[in-house]
C-alpha cells in the first residue's frame, strides 16, 4: 500500500539505523590501518638476488628505476678453468615520485629481487627525497609480509619440492 510520505519515513529510518551502528571511520594516525598483505605500498629490493639484468628498468613504463653496475672477473673456480665474470650492482634506485605502482618490475624480475610491501608512510617535503637508493630499498625488505598461505590441498611450490628432494638425496639444493 502506498501512502503519502512513506519515502521520507524510510529515509529517516535508514539514517537512524546508521547512527546506531559503529562508524566505519579508521582512526589512522592513532590506529595503524590493517592493510591486506598484497597492498601496493612501496617496492623493496633484495639486492643479494639482483643480477643487474636491467629487465625491470627496461620494462618500467615511466622509467623510474636507475641501475648502475660494473663487471668483475672472478678467478676460475677450478684449476685451469675459465675466468668467470659477474655484474656488481653499484646503484639501484627507484624514483617514487615517478613510479605509478604498476608492479611490472616485480612481475618481470626473474630472480625474485623486487617485492611489494604494504608500507606507505614515506612522504617527504622534498621531491628529490622520494628517490629511494639501494640502502633504503633494502631496508624496506624487512617489511615484506610472508607470501600468502597456499590453499589447502594445493601442490607444493616447485622450490620446496626441489629442496626436499635434494635433502633426501643428501646433496646441496
Amino acid at each position: 500500500m502506498r501512502f503519502y510520505g512513506k519515502g521520507i519515513l524510510t529515509g529517516l529510518a535508514v539514517t537512524l539505523r546508521a547512527m546506531t551502528r559503529r562508524a566505519v571511520t579508521r582512526q589512522y594516525p592513532e590506529v595503524r590501518p590493517d592493510l591486506p598483505p598484497r597492498s601496493r605500498g612501496v617496492i623493496a629490493l633484495l639486492e643479494e638476488n639482483c643480477t643487474s639484468c636491467m629487465l625491470c628498468a627496461r620494462e618500467c613504463p615511466d622509467w623510474c628505476i636507475y641501475i648502475e653496475s660494473h663487471k668483475e672477473t672472478l678467478p676460475p673456480a677450478t684449476e685451469g678453468g675459465r675466468e668467470r665474470s659477474r655484474n656488481v650492482l653499484d646503484r639501484f634506485a627507484i624514483d617514487f615520485s615517478l613510479c605509478m605502482y604498476c608492479g611490472i618490475c616485480i612481475e618481470v624480475c626473474p630472480f625474485d629481487a623486487l617485492f611489494w610491501t604494504p608500507e606507505f608512510e614515506y612522504a617527504e617535503h622534498d621531491i628529490a627525497e622520494l628517490t629511494h637508493e639501494r640502502d633504503v630499498l633494502r631496508e624496506w625488505m624487512w617489511t615484506v609480509p610472508p607470501p600468502p598461505a597456499l590453499d589447502p590441498g594445493a601442490e607444493r611450490p616447485k622450490e620446496v619440492v626441489d629442496a626436499l628432494r635434494a635433502a633426501a638425496e643428501g646433496r646441496p639444493a
Binding site: T15, L16, A18, M19, R21, A23, V24, T25, Q27
Partner: peptide
Amino acid sequence: KAMAHMQSRVGPM
C-alpha cells in the same frame, strides 16, 4: 556529530 554518525563517520575528533 549526529550527521557524522548518520553517515557512518565520526565527525570532528
